[in-house]
Amino acid sequence: MKFCVALVGGAISVLGSMPALAGDIDLDKVPEVAIASETVPFYLKGYVGVSMADADHLNKFPSFGVDSDYHWKNKSDMDDAFLGGVGLGYRMNDIVRLDGTVEYHAKNKMSARDQNFSNIRKYEGNASSIVLMANAYADLVTYHNVTPYIGAGIGASANRMNDFEVDAGSDHYEASSKTNWDIAWAIHAGVGVKLSRNVILDIGYSYSDLGDAKTGDFSKEATLKLDHLTSHDVKVGIRYAFK
């Protein structure tokens, strides 16, 4: 019992002296304790969309030296096709981010026709591409979780032509498949919509120049080249940030 009374008395004595001790402490010299909150600047992205492709020019089929007599009725009409891609990105700061992407443009049917008086030759085939691109973006001002961005990229594309044939009336020619690598570049624009702390909905547009595509050898004639394959791409995807 005496021990308890002594203990209580000692505690009251210490509590009573605390204001005096606190007055002797210089709070400006007390070191701050920082709580680390690391943010990993990497992100993953995946997207799908539509590729609206076009080409500047298709070589005329060299039909025994008389191809110069033919004039184009249409040079290269191309259908729309599916595209999809994945990428790994790195955010340098609140404005600049970088990423590398692998993108697949599915088979895009193309057709063309040229004519020599009453003779019409029909060209048909499929073009597809695998595009490797390094991109840089600038995220602009954010308003209500919506951030517009612009960007550009450069890389390489593997452009594949297959099932290509020329119908010249009485004659029919088929080419073997061929993949041609060329330099590719793109410009980008879009908006990112923040859905949560880690997830951003990405709605974007890209203009891509994929270089040239070439057919394989025809059974009797030379190859044909599809010059300056370009694509207007509309894409929707998700960016997932590691935080």
Score class of each variant (00 low, 15 high):
Asn159Phe: 11
Ala186Glu: 02
Gly84Gln: 00
His144Cys: 02
Pro41Arg: 04
Asn126Gln: 06
Ala127Lys: 01
His188Leu: 08
Tyr240Asp: 02
Val48Gly: 15
Val191Met: 03
Glu124Gly: 01
Asp202Gly: 00
Met110Glu: 07
Glu221Phe: 11
Ala152Trp: 12
Glu124Pro: 04
Asp79Phe: 08
Arg91Val: 05
Met18Arg: 09
Ala184Thr: 05
Met161Cys: 13
Glu32Leu: 09
Ala55Lys: 08
Asp94Asn: 15
Asn108Gly: 01
Ala241Glu: 11
Asp24Tyr: 04
Val66Tyr: 15
Lys220Ile: 04
Leu83His: 05
Asp171Asn: 12
Ser176Leu: 10
Asp227Cys: 06
Met1Asp: 13
Pro62Trp: 13
Val141Leu: 12
Ser17Ile: 13
Ala36Thr: 14
Leu229Val: 14
Ser208Thr: 02
Glu165Ile: 01
Tyr47Cys: 01
Tyr70Glu: 12
Gly49Gln: 02
Ile35Trp: 03
Ser63Glu: 05
Leu226Arg: 00
Arg97Ser: 02
Ala138Ile: 07
Asp233Ser: 11
Asp67Gln: 14
Leu88Pro: 02
Ala241His: 06
His71Glu: 15
Tyr207Gly: 05
Lys109Thr: 10
Asp94Ile: 03
Tyr143Gly: 02
Ala175Thr: 05
Ser111Asn: 10
Ala55Phe: 03
Arg239Cys: 01
His144Gln: 14
